[in-house]
């Protein structure tokens, strides 16, 4: 069985993106994407767990029977998240103070169980690792876009407090786009997350339709050329 890494990458980033196509992981998505920095932090932490759980589940996939696979996957993911939480708390405490809130939320992200079930349990270790990476990047991108959109509309800033997450150099990322902005509460609260996500999904559909139309036009032209 050959593994098409380009296919995996395209699936993770766009075609089968966790949010865009699978609509999984909406709980952490809506809870933490009030700002772009929070979205980035949550996305990166989820990506680490996606990669690690993909690797481990792919390794043990020969032993596990279909009847008990779900409890075993849940157990592996929960242990992994708890260990990450403890290790970060002990040795990268400053980062943990920022991300600590989000880490337990990763367990509730059904996208991780979803990838374990539909990919890692059926594929060897390297493609599983790559799938975790690509799904994680795709998830992080949507989180940052959604967090950024909500942050601009809701508080008039972009990447506020990024230096807490990425170190002091990141303070150049912190922008106050609309000075003296009064704030738009609805967008910051979870319903605003649903609204903005709806617009982003609609935008994705529009782009897909444009791409399909272009492809169809090109095919038609080629057909016309061959007929002439």
């Amino acid at each position: 069985m050959s593994h098409d890494y380009r296919r995996i990458a395209k699936d993770g980033l766009w075609d089968n993106n966790i949010i865009f196509a699978q609509a999984l992981g909406l709980c952490p998505l809506l809870a933490v994407t009030g700002t772009a920095s929070n979205g980035l932090g949550m996305g990166l932490a989820s990506m680490v767990v996606l990669i690690a759980s993909g690797m481990i589940i792919s390794l043990v996939r020969g032993v596990i029977t279909p009847q008990v696979r779900i409890p075993v996957f849940v157990l592996i993911i929960a242990v992994l998240v708890t260990l990450v939480d403890m290790v970060m708390n002990a040795w990268v405490h400053d980062l943990h103070k920022i991300l600590g809130l989000f880490i337990p939320l990763i367990v509730t992200n059904c996208a991780i169980l979803g990838r374990a079930e539909s990919f890692a349990s059926r594929n060897p270790i390297l493609p599983s690792l790559f799938d975790g990476l690509m799904m994680g990047i795709g998830f992080t991108l949507v989180m940052v876009v959604l967090g950024g959109a909500r942050e601009i509309l809701g508080s008039g800033t972009l990447f506020a407090n990024a230096s807490l997450l990425l170190g002091s150099w990141a303070s150049i990322l912190e922008l106050e786009l609309i000075p003296d902005y009064k704030g738009f509460l609805l967008i910051i609260l979870p319903p605003g997350g649903f609204l903005v996500l709806g617009f982003i999904l609609a935008g994705k559909r529009l782009i897909d339709r444009k791409l399909a139309a272009i492809a169809a036009e090109r095919a038609e032209q080629e057909l016309a050329l061959t007929q002439n």
Binding site: V63, V68, L75, I76, L83, M86, V87
Partner: peptide
Amino acid sequence: LLGSFSTLATALLVSGN
């Protein structure tokens, strides 16, 4: 299977803690 995975998980969490 379930029992050994749970034991392994417990052992990992205890040593992690």
